[in-house]
Design a protein around this nucleic acid. Structure first.
Lengths: 146, 146
DNA sequence: CAAAGTAGTGGGTGTGAACCCACTATAGGG
DNA sequence: CCCTATAGTGGGTTCACACCCACTACTTTG
């Protein structure tokens, strides 16, 4: 008896279809967890960028995350309200706000990374470590070269 | 000099992040092409399901595509208006509508599959055929086993 | 020092996805 | 025949996401 939710072969044979489905699945699962604390994926991304690449002006961070500056301002409001970033006026150019990760922000980021890895373990469960590494390497090439 | 849009390493090392990004990229690109003809991805999916798995009632097709029955009804309106499916009342149960692909629908589906493969070639451009096969096999496992 | 440009912000808009309810038509069990 | 259940449909709502404009504050340039 056929599974009534089985994917049509015409779609299953499209790599991009599988990419899109599994990607959306992963995204949705993590988004649901973050939503429990009122966060969006871009809050996580913003903390990660500040941790990895150092302080940014809001403009630069918006560019990096491919977010509208006005949307990033709203995201920064929340991160600052939670005490995860400092927003300091640049004395050399008083229009600019420099966003810097706080110690609390670094701690929260570590937790968010742990949540992301939990979701990842669930999504990648069917693959063994070597296969996961292969997948990661291939996706990295797509991400860079796309 | 650092690329101002470079992805933070903390995110780049998450396979699920790459999955989500590349999947979204693929989905968006195909969606844009379909939008030129007023179509959504689920119109493509519906035609594919009818072609691969034969006629469905609207209920069954909605279940298979994980769409709300009410939303599928609207999609079926469009497909029928374009002459790509027949909607016939089931004589054994006059509540049911059986959706069947027409010859024109089969032709249009072939075109849509070709568009999907064009997008796929663009997205997978950085990979050689063997790597694409590997990626496909891994994603199939995730899709099935997830 | 006036004019033009840029950083940030508040308050919008439009869209697609997903969902949900009320309703009609039909079916089937007791 | 009545009662409950199911298929389809019309008309909504909610939400995230992406975008956009006007405005203030400040800087740079001619």
């Amino acid at each position: 008896m056929a599974d009534p939710t089985e994917t049509p072969p015409s779609l299953r044979e499209l790599t991009t279809y599988l990419l899109s489905r599994t990607g959306k699945e992963a995204r949705t699962r993590l988004a649901e967890r973050l939503a429990a604390d009122g966060l969006r994926l871009y809050h996580h991304a913003a903390l990660a960028a500040l941790a990895d690449l150092g302080p940014h002006t809001q403009r630069d961070l918006a560019t990096r995350l491919r977010l509208d500056p006005s949307d990033l301002a709203k995201a920064a409001d929340l991160l600052a309200a939670r005490g995860w970033i400092d927003r300091t006026r640049d004395p050399a150019d008083r229009r600019r706000l420099t966003l810097t990760l706080t110690a609390a922000g670094r701690t929260r980021l570590a937790e968010l990374q742990a949540e992301a890895r939990t979701v990842q373990d669930a999504v990648l469960a069917p693959l063994d470590p070597a296969e996961r590494a292969t997948l990661h390497a291939l996706l990295l090439r797509l991400h860079a070269g796309g």
